[in-house]
Design a protein around this nucleic acid. Structure first.
Lengths: 341, 341
DNA sequence: CTGTTAGCGCGTTCAC
DNA sequence: GTGAACGCGCTAACAG
């Protein structure tokens, strides 16, 4: 059995209050007593029981994080930021993967509240209103990180999808491209931030007097890419598009693969731009021009926001949305048509 | 303020003991009393405070996981297994990234022990004897997951690196390759499991009457790959090797990139095999033949082992090593030389 | 400066 | 079957 505050008190021949005082440095203690306590602590290798402490102080120093899937690259990058900043403030992370099941998320919220977490961060693709409602009911502060949805019920950290998409499109135009196709996920349309990305693309095209054209893809698998390719093969061969701007890096890579499999040269026959800034975009050849999302920063900002809410629980009720800047990474997957003139 | 057991007792007009009994189903309670308690619980939306509970039962239902870097693909895949199985047993995961700093790992071990975690899983590249010693001192059960080191001080879950490497080499030989080069990380040699991989390769080569040849690479970056290429360019051009078996997928991919950049055709001029089974290996073209490590299973088995240790703390002191089977994934990066005959 | 006391919320004797 | 009382390990008044 580990030693308790009592053991220390006994050995140092003081009361437990005095021990508590030197541990927390909460009240003045005579040098002599402090010395004896410190000595006893080191001899007994005493470490305060945080559970008992939490019970009385009502501070667990734990943040609950509910993610869709920890195995997801995007999620783990964000989590990195959350974890590191949390650590700076002496907070631990209680982690759970919901696999995007709303009911499971609610179950976790319950569990976490029972474990007395002080706040919760949600990294999820789905929008779980019921969960937010529940958290509000529990009075547990909460910050949402979501690539897809805009949430009004809680502070959210994300990027300005529309501006990012606008800027990338603008860049492509500056590279001399006029026939720019946008590849979007069909299943994510309407309900998600995808629509903001598309809007940015369309706005940029129209501002340049060009005609936007969107292709829809069912999912993120290679098969989905193949399907999209076959559907539009004629257009691709005829050179209807000089570049495809894909709403996700992975889709761009799959499409490049498929086109190559069908004898097209990349980027000569078709330029590509992605969205995300995944490590894959840097490893693949040609290196993919893409919109780099600041994953780490998103996590870091989110937990900082959470701490702020913890501080002044009453005042800062601003359920704002924090938008982080993105970076357009210019690589070889986009050919400069200006050179050809 | 959330309601407590007292509130429930008051409303149900029973003592807190009775409430506790129906919650834990620990002792018989009259149907009538139970009904009233249940009703009060639902009305008050009462949920037991797990912190208070832990304090008295000495069971936190929390497992601490110390990882090198949660942003690492390998780590997050393993964590998935840990998390999911942990959940099945109603355990939560307290997560922290050490970034491979031994001192930080020890700090976490202390923190975790103060938070009364019941066990700890370590997913790290480094071998931290001091940490293991400390955990032993705390009497906190611990399982180690390590791709590189063999640990004797605690149960370890890993794969049979030597056998895996042997089998892959054997496969390459069967594909008609005779001049098989092995690419290893220099910095990981000797101290790590890398040596087992090399041994497997060498044994397989010798068993087939072939001469092993190892090339050393400094690290995992593209620059490292380039350096290795330049160092051995002559050999590569002269066809000294028909295939390179790389100790990590990423290195294989970087090397393929570099060789292509220098005008070589892959896999025509050089076949490639990797180790890891990363998602990248399936996305890259040509798809990479590789040894697929069962990341999820490794995590799942590790936490199961931990639970076993928690069960019968005294009996199961076996500090064994659990080896999981791997799979050789045959893809297009290795050409079949037998066809050419 | 210090020790005594009263809880925090809950599980668990031990009498009734 | 049930409730009163104690204690888990600790912090926070409260007197002194």
């Amino acid at each position: 059995m580990a030693s308790t505050i009592k053991d220390v008190a006994k050995m140092a021949d003081v009361s437990i209050s005095t021990v508590s005082r030197v541990i927390n440095d909460s009240k003045p203690v005579s040098p002599e007593a402090r010395r004896r306590v410190l000595h006893a602590i080191s001899v007994l290798d005493y470490k305060p029981n945080e559970v008992a402490r939490s019970l009385v102080t009502k501070k667990s120093n734990i943040i609950g994080v509910i993610v869709s899937d920890i195995g997801n690259q995007y999620v783990s990058q964000v989590l990195r930021g959350v974890e590191e900043i949390g650590r700076m403030y002496n907070y631990d992370i209680l982690l759970s993967s919901s696999y995007d099941d709303p009911e499971v998320e609610i179950k976790f919220a319950n569990l976490f509240s029972q474990k007395q977490v002080e706040g919760i961060i949600i990294i999820s693709e789905i929008l779980n209103q019921k969960l937010l409602y529940k958290l509000d009911e529990f009075k547990i502060p909460c910050v949402v990180i979501n690539r897809f949805y805009n949430v009004d019920e809680a502070p959210t950290v994300t990027i300005n999808n529309k501006a990012a998409s606008y800027n990338m499109t603008d860049y492509l135009i500056n590279m001399g491209h006029k026939s720019i196709g946008y590849v979007a996920m069909r299943k994510d349309m309407d309900r998600t931030n995808e629509k903001y990305k598309i809007r940015g693309y369309r706005d940029a095209m129209r501002a340049a007097g060009l005609k936007p054209s969107t292709l829809y893809c069912e999912g993120l698998t290679e098969a989905d890419a193949l399907e999209l390719f076959e559907e539009h093969e004629d257009d691709f061969r005829k050179g209807k598009y000089s570049v495809l701007f894909c709403s996700q890096d992975l889709m761009a890579v799959h499409l490049m693969n498929v086109m190559r499999d069908h004898g097209m040269e990349i980027p000569e026959d078709m330029s590509f731009a992605g969205f995300g800034g995944s490590t894959l975009s840097d490893i693949y050849r040609p290196k993919l021009t893409t919109v780099k999302e600041p994953y780490y920063d998103i996590g870091a900002v989110a937990i900082r926001k959470l701490f702020k809410m913890l501080d002044k629980k009453n005042t800062d009720k601003s359920e704002e949305m924090i938008l982080l800047p993105v970076e357009i990474i210019k690589r070889q997957s986009v050919v400069d048509l200006n050179d050809k003139k």
